[in-house]
Structures are given as structure tokens and as C-alpha cells.
Design a protein around this nucleic acid. Structure first.
Length: 575
RNA sequence: UGGGGCGUCGUCAAGCGGUAAGACACAAGGUUUUGGUCCUUGCAUUCGCGGGUUCGAAUCCUGCCGCCCCAACCA
């Protein structure tokens, strides 16, 4: 790496957390105090390997992980792979990468629900022998009809009292593949009139004559979520099974299995509100649609709320940890303001990211009274927030570029930047005054002819005169040309589906602007992928790990800086 | 409308009978060689609504109202 350039930004480890308190931790504390499960705490994150993890999963992962940490317990990663039709190994690796990136450590405890298929099958047989499960021959449509509705009780299946030996035999034959899909199911015998629909003889196994990504063609039947989840928890010695609110209605069933099976442990399920964010969508189905329809460039497109997308945008794991902490934990359906997420990365990068100068839309400036051919090395501080960040040298010459936005021929009263006859400071360098505007045939400004004050070297004048504006700049002869990608919110409205709208209709057409001719200070052209910095007065940027090439980094805008000038002007208060 | 859950600032979220934390956002000042950061100040006389209990309620009781989840051989 070029020595002129300050070191890379923060890599992103989770930082030590302040004391947290929420209803889940209160329950756990209670359980530990009461000595339940021997006072152990053991949590797990159970993703289904059918998609990429998003920021909502981060909240769940970090909850289980930090709870385990705080109570001196353990944390497992378990793939909930009971539906071979939807799941694939493709997703397993990305999920592991993302969980690891967040800092959650499952050590050697990576499990799969499919690891327990034999045990689950044995427990299914156990239930049949106990008279608590039976093979049902109703088809899908009939099962639905017999189940009743939320206001009417269901009716018992005609097979409800099938003798255990017969059910046992049928189950075995289902397993070995004697029957086509849909012909039989295994159901628990609970209560067809139960007010909780989940308790009306729920299905335990269905026939699926498809290979599984881990067990191959060993099985022709696969357990359903309810029959797998709690038992898997119990097998792993999980004490606290933390999941989102929609599983609240499944809890009585979860407990029914724990109560009726000789399981080795008594896990407790506790539900919390899943994370929703403004200006985005979170469901796997919709994210998949964005990818499949080409609205974004893949799961790791920096506009996606996926963890790989956020990582590629330039978010650090520590900023996401802090975000999750700040969001809090409760049971209320809620939608967090995207600004809170953005703030979590800005706050960190403000502290740690080196400042550099970049001109996104260049406007030529010639310093007419500066000697031609002269090159001065200007000393620039790397980070005003960090005295230890040191300095670097940036070349200054007669021909420079500044930002087009930083010059205005007809400037409003509160415009502090360069205007005809006006004076500004070039950051760390000199005061310059605009003397002359050069325009092309159609009247567009192509060049500014300015004079500098040699006495103002370093950016301040001995006579104490003040300038209101400070601009970043680059030397025309030395600047490196790079590609910059300006990312903005994926959707143009906070609630893309509000009022029954199709979320695709609310995509933000300006969510990505690619700038190919940005000019940056010379050393920045040699930066390694993954480099983080602040482009002064623009925002925080991240050298894209995928599209950057040696000597040709591509910079993704992670977050903008707050822009109170834009706000002023938009509010019509700039006069 | 059968069951389950939830309603505290624009958005999250503390509070658990003793008189409304904090964060983000927002607003107004100050500092500033980033119109960034930072600092100061402001921002719920009120806790979905109505009754009741109490010396005292966001917290207890009660009746409404609203929102979410459950009728996949998905998780």
C-alpha cells in the first residue's frame, strides 16, 4: 500500500456492549436464578438455507449471541433444513460467512435439523405407539376442510383412530418410498376443536420424494417445522429458543412435543418483534424478486438490506452490532427509521475514517499567478477526530480541479463557496479568488481563472482575514481518475407497500449513480479493495472488493455526510 | 370475530403504584481550515379511549377502540 495514504478504515469487530436490559434478558435471568436446566444458558440461530441473510436476521443473531455471551453460555448455528424442495447448499456458506462476520461464534457447533432425522423418526414412532399420532390418508384439500375455520371447530379425520401397528407400518412404507407424494401424512392426535388452529392435529411428516442436499435420497418423508424445531432445540441442549413473533401461536405445540416426548432438555421459546426498516423490504420473497428481475445486481448489491449487500456498501460489523443494540428488543410491531442504521455507520466512520480529497464532478481552475510547472507538497491532516492519524502530502500545482457544485455564477446570499470575485480557501493550501469565468459555445462554465494569495499558505492569512468557504481540490496533473458509485435508498418512499402498493412501483430510479470521471488525490488510486475513507464534504466511501482492480479502485458511497447547505437551499432559506 | 399478541414523543424504546429515561430524527444557537464533527438548548403536563380502585395510576381493575399473527403436506 502507498505510504502516503493512511491505513484502512475499521475492519469491524463487535465492541464491548453497555449493559442491556429487555424482557428476554429478564426471563433468562429468572430462569438462571431458578436453576432451570441447571442454570445453563444456551441459544441458537436456526436459519433455513433458502436465501441470504438480511439486517433483520442480524437482529436475531445478535440477540441470541449476546444473550449467550452475557450469561456465560453457548450459541449454536443450526440449519433448519426440513424442506428439501426450497433449500440448497448454495445458501449454507453465505449464511456462515455472514454470521461469522457479525461476530457470533458457534465454535464447533454447526448443526442441521437433518442431522436429527433418525431421532425425529424414532420419536414419531414413539408418538404412534403412545396413541398420540396416526397416519392420515386425507388429501391436502380434505385436510383443509376437516380443519374447520377460526370460528368453527374441525372434524376428526376418518383415520384418527387407525390402530398403532397399522400407522407404524404405513409410516415405514412412506419412509422407504412405497407411496406417491400426497397420499399419506403423519399427524399428531391432539384436538380438532382446539381454538388454536395449530393444535388441530398438526402434520408431522409429509411424503416428499426428492433428494435432500445433505441426506441425499435416504428419505422419502420429511418432518415439518413444528415437529422438528423444538426437538432439535432439546437435542442440542438449547435452553432459550428465541424467535420472532409469528411463532407465538406455535408455542403451545412446541411445548406439547416437549411434554410428550422423552427429550433430554426443556428449552423455552420466547418471541420478539422482527426488525423492519423504512425505505426497504425485508422478506426473502421480495428480495429474491429484486434479484431475479434485475432491479439490483445480485444479493450483494450495495442497495440490498442483505448483510452481504451492506458489507459491500461499506458497513462494518461493529456498526451493525451497535445498531442492533440501539434498536432494542420488544414485542411491539415496529419499523425502525433507516436513519438510525445510517447513523450507526457514520458515527463510527467519523471517528475512524481517514479524510481524503475527491472531486466527483470536476471543474478546471487555473491559478494564473502560480508559477507554471511548480509542484508544492501540501501537508494535510488525516483525521481531525484522531490526533494519532498523522498527516500526508498532496501535490498542489497551477492547474487544479474543484467540484462543479462549489462554483456558482449567480450565488444566493448564503452561498459560501466560490463565486465571481469571491474568495475561498482550498483546504490545507491557499486562499484563491475567482477573477474570470471561461465558457464554451453554449455558455457552460468550463474553467475558472483565479489568483492565489501566497501569504495564505496552509489555509490562513497573516492579516487575519476570513473566508467562509473551504473546498477540496486535486492537482490536474497528479489526480487519479476513478469510478465512484453513489448509492441511495432502494425505494423512494418509507413504506414501499403502503396502501397495498406494489413495492416495485416505488423503486427509487436514482438509487445508483455511477460516476466514471471522478478525480481523487494521487495516492488514492492505489488503494486496496476494502479501503474505507471519507471523501471530504461528500461522505464515507469503500473500495469495492469485487469490482476494484489494482490501480483502479471503484468507490462505493457508504453514507453521505449531513448536508445542512442542501437543507437550507431546499427550504428556500439560502437568500 | 375463535384463539394468541401488541398499543408510551415523528421513529425505536425505558418505565412494573409515587408523580414520563435514553437514542435517532427535528428545531434554534455556539465552535469549526469538512455548510462534517463537537457543544448548548428545545422537543410527550402526558402514556389508544372511557369508567373505576387509590392520598396518588402509564403502571391495578373494567368496558370499548385499533393494529398484528394463526385456517401451507413453508419456516
Amino acid at each position: 500500500m502507498n505510504e502516503d495514504i493512511p491505513g484502512p478504515g475499521p475492519a469491524g469487530a463487535a465492541d464491548a456492549d453497555a449493559e442491556r436490559n429487555d424482557f428476554i434478558r429478564a426471563f433468562v435471568r429468572e430462569d438462571v436464578a431458578a436453576g432451570r436446566n441447571g442454570g445453563r444458558v444456551h441459544t441458537r440461530f436456526p436459519p433455513e438455507p433458502n436465501g441470504y441473510l438480511h439486517i433483520g436476521h442480524a437482529k436475531a443473531i445478535l440477540l441470541s449471541w449476546t444473550v449467550a455471551q452475557e450469561f456465560g453460555g453457548k450459541f449454536n448455528l443450526r440449519f433448519d433444513d426440513t424442506n428439501p424442495e426450497k433449500e440448497d447448499v448454495e445458501y449454507v456458506e453465505s449464511i456462515k460467512t455472514d454470521v461469522r462476520w457479525l461476530g457470533a461464534d458457534w465454535e464447533d457447533r454447526e448443526f442441521h435439523a437433518s442431522d436429527y432425522f433418525d431421532q425425529l423418526y424414532a420419536w414419531a414412532q414413539h408418538l404412534i405407539r403412545e396413541g398420540k399420532a396416526y397416519i392420515c390418508s386425507l388429501d391436502e384439500e380434505k385436510i383443509r376442510q376437516y380443519r374447520g375455520t377460526v370460528t368453527e371447530a374441525g372434524r376428526p379425520s376418518p383415520d384418527r383412530d387407525r390402530p398403532a401397528p397399522e400407522s407404524l407400518d404405513l409410516l415405514e412404507r412412506m419412509r422407504v418410498g412405497e407411496f406417491p407424494e400426497g397420499t399419506y401424512t403423519l399427524r399428531a392426535k391432539i384436538d380438532m376443536a382446539h381454538p388454536n388452529m395449530k393444535m388441530r392435529d398438526p402434520l408431522l411428516y409429509r411424503i416428499r420424494r426428492v433428494p435432500h442436499h445433505r441426506t441425499g435420497d435416504k428419505w422419502n418423508i420429511y418432518p415439518l417445522y413444528d415437529f422438528a424445531h423444538g426437538q432439535c432445540d432439546a437435542i442440542e441442549g438449547i435452553t432459550h429458543s428465541l424467535c420472532s413473533l409469528e411463532f407465538e401461536v406455535n408455542r403451545p405445540l412446541y411445548e406439547w412435543f416437549i411434554d410428550n416426548l422423552p427429550v433430554p432438555c426443556r428449552p423455552r421459546q420466547i418471541e420478539f418483534a422482527r426488525l423492519k426498516l423504512t425505505y426497504t423490504v425485508m422478506s426473502k420473497r421480495k428480495l429474491l424478486q429484486l434479484v431475479k428481475n434485475g432491479h439490483v445486481n445480485g444479493w450483494d448489491d450495495p442497495r440490498m438490506p442483505t448483510l452481504c449487500g451492506l458489507r459491500r456498501l461499506g458497513y462494518t460489523a461493529s456498526s451493525i452490532n451497535r445498531f442492533a443494540e440501539r434498536v432494542g428488543m420488544a414485542k411491539r410491531d415496529s419499523t425502525v427509521d433507516l436513519d438510525l442504521l445510517k447513523w450507526s455507520i457514520r458515527e463510527e466512520l467519523n471517528r475512524e475514517a481517514p479524510r481524503v480529497m475527491a472531486v466527483l464532478r470536476p471543474l478546471k481552475v487555473v491559478i494564473t499567478n502560480y508559477p507554471e510547472g511548480q509542484v508544492e507538497q501540501i501537508v494535510c491532516e488525516n483525521n481531525p477526530e484522531d490526533p494519532n492519524a498523522g498527516t500526508r502530502e498532496v501535490p498542489f500545482t497551477r492547474d487544479l480541479y474543484i467540484e462543479q457544485d462549489d462554483f456558482r455564477e449567480d450565488a444566493p446570499r448564503k452561498y459560501f463557496r466560490l463565486k465571481p470575485g469571491g474568495e475561498v480557501r482550498l483546504k490545507h493550501a491557499y486562499f484563491i479568488r475567482c477573477d474570470e469565468i471561461v465558457k464554451d459555445a453554449v455558455g457552460a462554465v468550463t474553467e475558472l481563472r483565479c489568483t492565489y494569495d501566497p501569504e495564505s499558505r496552509g489555509g490562513s492569512s497573516p492579516d487575519g482575514r476570513k473566508v467562509q468557504g473551504t473546498l477540496q481540490w486535486v492537482s490536474a496533473a497528479h489526480a487519479a481518475k476513478v469510478e465512484v458509485r453513489l448509492y441511495d435508498n432502494l425505494f423512494r418512499v418509507p413504506f414501499p407497500e403502503e396502501g397495498g402498493a406494489d413495492f416495485l412501483d416505488n423503486l427509487n430510479p436514482d438509487s445508483l449513480e455511477v460516476i466514471t470521471g471522478a478525480l481523487v488525490e494521487p495516492a488514492l488510486g492505489q488503494v486496496a479493495p476494502g479501503y474505507r475513507c471519507q471523501f471530504m464534504r461528500h461522505g464515507y466511501f469503500f473500495a469495492d472488493p469485487i469490482d476494484s482492480r489494482p490501480g483502479a479502485p471503484v468507490f462505493n458511497r457508504t453514507a453521505t455526510l449531513k448536508d445542512s447547505w442542501a437543507k437550507l437551499e431546499a427550504g428556500g432559506k439560502s437568500e
